[in-house]
């Protein structure tokens, strides 16, 4: 009887020590699912989902507070991937928001710019250069096309969202398709 208790106690101590060590050594900082969701989002930081950026939205989805179908630039592709990841059914968002807008970058009309820095404060990725009473400009290679600078600008027709044209370097091959031939009925 006593031996059994001692043996069980020893096993409990050893296993406890292993578990204790593992909980310190392999401690996971934060919720890893948030990082995984964040990696699936397009990182435009546009806030169209109702959250202030991609990471806050990822946190909201991870906690079950938000549904995976709110990301508009990511479209159904990102939505489906997130839904698969968190294990919920994907429902397409209603209304006309279902279709992601064509990729665009912001452009500042320099004649109209008054140098107010309002857009610089609004830009989530620091893609706008300029300072007070100096003309601002956009680094188009960094701009995510979120459009947050457009409403922030107090001047009309200063910031324009210009669609990115397809050129030779960004052109893609199409899915092979065939012409459908009409087969005439033999009388």
């Amino acid at each position: 009887m006593l031996t059994a208790i001692i043996v069980m106690a020893c096993i409990a101590v050893v296993l406890g020590a292993i578990l204790g060590f593992a909980s310190i050594k392999f401690k996971v900082e934060g919720n890893p699912i948030v990082n995984q969701i964040d990696a699936l989002l397009p990182q435009t930081q546009c806030g169209q989902c109702g959250y202030p950026g991609c990471r806050p939205y990822a946190e909201a989805v991870a906690s079950g507070e938000a549904t995976p179908n709110l990301c508009i630039p990511g479209g159904p592709g990102a939505g489906q991937a997130i839904a698969d990841l968190v294990g919920v059914a994907y429902e397409p968002p209603g209304g006309d928001s279902a279709e992601p807008a064509p990729k665009a970058v912001a452009f500042i009309e320099e004649k109209a710019c008054i140098g107010c820095t309002a857009c610089i404060k609004a830009c989530p990725v620091d893609a706008i250069i300029g300072t007070t009473k100096q003309v601002h400009t956009i680094i188009s290679s960094v701009c995510t096309g979120c459009g947050l600078c457009e409403p922030a600008c107090p001047v009309e027709e200063c910031i324009i969202m210009e669609p990115v044209p397809t050129d030779i370097s960004t052109w893609k091959w199409k899915y092979p398709t065939y012409e459908v031939k009409e087969v005439k009925k033999v009388a």
Partner: peptide
């Protein structure tokens, strides 16, 4: 077709990674 789709995805991934870093830095 598959190659250009994959290359496009890789490009988008790189752009998203850059945007994420810049947003975190901001």
């Amino acid at each position: 077709y598959a190659k250009s789709e994959l290359m496009e995805r890789d490009r988008e991934k790189r752009a998203a990674e850059m945007a994420r870093q810049r947003s975190e830095l901001k």
